[in-house]
Amino acid sequence: MSNSFWRTLSTHAILICGMIFMSAPVYIAFMSSTHAPETLFNEGLQYWFGGHFFETYNEVLFVEGGVMKKVTASRMLVNSMILGLGFAIGKVVISMSAAYAIVYFRFRLAVPLFWVIFMTLLLPLEVRIVPSYEVVAGLGLLNTHTGLIVPLIASATGTFFFRQFFKSVPEELLEAARLDNAGPLRFLIDILVPLSKTMIAAILIIMFVVGWNQYLWPLIMTTEETSYTIVIGIKQIYQVLSEGGELPQFQKAFALTILATLPPVLVVLVFQNWFVKGLVESEK
């Protein structure tokens, strides 16, 4: 009895500490973003609401020159959204088709090819960034959404997950479909995709967040402000804000940070049910 009381207490204490530790910076950033630049400059970080919420966020989001030289935060949010969605959807489509080929078309090299794909885990973008840049630049895709997304969408992890899932689908389902005159494409669309939908949802969500948070690749390959993603915006804003010898506009940097964290948080909150389902159960 008392044993379980102390246990409950200590586990909760640990969890609460962890939660404070993780969310305090976000809280401080949010509070600070609602103050005037003078307050921040004079008094440092703020722990409670100031009166400049609408002013700051309006300027950051909608006023040209309010945050960067030209591009607004809403434009950067759109860019990030395109990157996040393109990244996630691209990964799902590519890895699903790869896994489909590997599992269902028994061609000679299926197994070695799978391991080759799997080994690309050892070659993340950071390692091959120079050649990748070279290729994308050569194709004239710098500062484009295509150039931003395509080099990132091959996914060994995704292929692996789909492969494992497809292997667990009973063989008889394929056989029944063959007798029902469903060709390979029909089988994929009518049967495998619906069966994997929770799995697809889970991968989409994870990959959206990963894509949204991409840093190095967008940093290297976007040179024009209009193609900045919001994460790159955060990096660049300090340069922009401290130029010209004016008072640094730290509240805007904080506001940008908050704006950058919001969409992934919302996606995870809204889809968390699907997400958990996708990881723990499947309809087979």
Partner: peptide
């Protein structure tokens, strides 16, 4: 002849119904 063109129907031990 491919399975579909043989015009045969099969009932499997585990039924193999499309679950969705």
């Amino acid at each position: 002849t491919s399975p579909a063109d043989r015009d045969v129907a099969m009932v499997f031990q585990n039924y193999a119904l499309y679950p969705h």
